[in-house]
């Protein structure tokens, strides 16, 4: 297994507030890396730095190095970076257009024009997000008419459509019902065959079920990063153990 992304001595400030403190993580290719930790510990902040979504926020200063396949992402073109490192958000955010248009939005801006190619991308992406069977007969209906779980899978399909290498997911199931959550968890198993997945969750069972590696965040610091089974069964740090066993958080 090779290294996809490497984060070195990452520090992030919102104004004076030190939100990420000397964070170091390796992201392994074709694996699911879970980020866990109590609310407000900096998980979202961290995952947003991986495709420079924090550029959109004023007053953020970032130091340290994040590399994608050995290249510093600061030196990458941000548009190209985000094409390679796509992101799915906590709340489903389908565009107010049809299901079909949602999926082809990305390919189109990146230059795909041919109708046949686009049709193929739509089917492939929706299959990839385990949504094809449910929506294949109503591709041209508004995406906002889908259920929450379907909307979230559509958002995953929308990202898959631009064929990213890394898939960032910030609590993708926290706004969903248990059935939809299960569907998306099942999806992870498939996704990691083709993509590198980084997922934030504050549901520990979920992290345990779907991830290969887990990092535990607390107050902007990484307390422990390891194989998921080690984190859950052989935590080295007392605070990790307390969190896993539900003593706080």
């Amino acid at each position: 297994m090779s290294l996809k992304m490497k984060i070195n001595h990452l520090n992030l400030h919102y104004g004076d507030f030190h939100a990420l403190k000397d964070v170091n993580i390796d992201i392994t290719e074709n694996a699911v890396t879970a980020l866990i930790g109590p609310s407000g510990c900096g998980k979202s902040t961290f995952i947003r730095t991986l495709n420079r979504m924090n550029d959109l926020i004023d007053n953020v200063t970032i130091t340290g190095e994040i590399s994608l396949e050995g290249i510093d992402i600061k030196k990458c073109d941000v548009i190209e970076l985000r094409k390679r490192v796509g992101m799915v958000f906590q709340k489903p955010n389908p565009f107010p257009m049809s299901i079909y248009e949602n999926v082809i939005y990305g390919p189109k801006i990146h230059g795909a024009k041919d109708k046949k190619v686009l049709d193929a991308i739509v089917e492939k992406s929706l299959r990839g997000a385990a949504l094809w069977e449910e929506v294949k007969d109503r591709l041209h209906k508004p995406a906002l008419g889908l259920s929450g779980g379907q909307q979230q899978r559509l958002c995953i399909a929308r990202v898959l459509a631009v064929e990213p290498e890394v898939l960032l997911m910030d609590e993708p199931t926290s706004a969903l019902d248990p059935a939809s959550t299960l569907k998306i968890e099942d999806l992870m198993e498939q996704l990691k065959k083709e993509y590198t997945v980084v997922i934030v969750t504050h549901n520990m069972q979920q992290a345990g079920r779907i991830s290969d590696f887990t990092s535990f965040f607390l107050n902007g610091e990484i307390i422990e990063s390891d194989k998921t089974e080690n984190i859950f069964y052989k935590p080295r740090d007392k605070r990790t153990e307390d969190y896993i066993t539900g003593r706080f958080g």
């Binding site: 959109l56 548009i79 985000r82 796509g86 992101m87 958000f89 955010n93 565009f95 801006i109 631009v162």
Partner: peptide, 9 residues
């Protein structure tokens, strides 16, 4: 953000 996150200008 959804649009930026897949590489929109």
């Amino acid at each position: 953000h959804g649009a930026f996150a897949i590489g929109s200008t």
